[in-house]
Design a protein around this nucleic acid. Structure first.
Lengths: 150, 150
DNA sequence: GATGAAACGTTGTGGTT
DNA sequence: AACCACAACGTTTCATC
């Protein structure tokens, strides 16, 4: 599962986490490799699963989702599975985890406004008991993975 | 704040959220534009802030972080600000939000193992009271932003 | 990994609607 | 204002070493 990543690959990962569209030629200039060498290293990391994809980061607020909330769900008996099957179709849900503890599920959701939030909570009520926290500000957003010097 | 995005731009955003390294020429073929036209539209969305960046997605588990947890923090009096200043230097913290409710802070953290978790919680204890939920599985991970047909 | 060459992509200019 | 066509330049990819 765990791949050994050398110092050069960490530099490449740093670059690509900062700007996934940076050219391999440019990355090569920064780390001291030729473009084909960078390309090969990247392809290997993709094949190993170290890099699982490249995503454009789209602003929630600029696309009409001005409100963010964290919602926990304590699913009713027999309602967890139906929820897990439905949650992928909820456009509001950006992240969702199954967790230990009194609540089974925690989600980060984006919403247009308070009315949208109300409607969304109504949609969840069939699956279980919810608890909602409004997000006041983002302190850290998808921080890059750095070398863990173990 | 909110930009009006037409159907073509939504298709471009969909492509770039699925694969941020896809060429403008290729995207153009899919949506029925030439490469320069796609390039111009993308540049405009970047300038407006609709697209805020491009990130390689690096696997936590393949880089030595086998354990994920959600930790809430109820900061002690006068300890919230010091925490907010320190949290960016915690390599374990991937996401962190200030929220309403009894707890002020919620974080998604990645860890090497249970000992790492223990050490990390010890590091937090000076800032406030914590509550930890282990993540059992990812149900939804950074879902793309889709058109909100309002 | 490097080099060199061919294929491909990006980006600027100019012109059309 | 948005797009296309074309061309110069940079990048990727494949062969070979």
């Amino acid at each position: 599962m765990k791949a050994k990543i050398d110092a050069l690959n960490w530099k490449i990962l740093k670059s690509l986490q900062e700007n996934a569209r940076e050219s391999f030629a440019n990355i090569g200039r920064k780390v001291g490799l030729t473009a084909p060498a960078v390309g090969e290293r990247v392809k290997k990391m993709e094949d190993l699963g170290v890099i699982s994809g490249y995503k454009a980061v789209v602003s929630h607020s600029h696309t009409g989702y001005q409100l963010k909330a964290i919602i926990t769900l304590r699913a009713f008996m027999g309602k967890l599975k139906p929820f897990l099957e439905a949650v992928n179709s909820f456009e509001e849900v950006v992240n969702c985890y199954r967790i230990t503890g009194n609540e089974n599920i925690i989600m980060m959701v984006v919403l247009k406004d308070q009315f949208h939030l109300e409607k969304f909570i109504d949609k969840l009520i069939q699956y279980g008991e919810t608890r909602t926290h409004i997000v006041l500000s983002d302190v850290v957003s998808n921080a890059p993975i750095r070398r863990s010097d173990s």
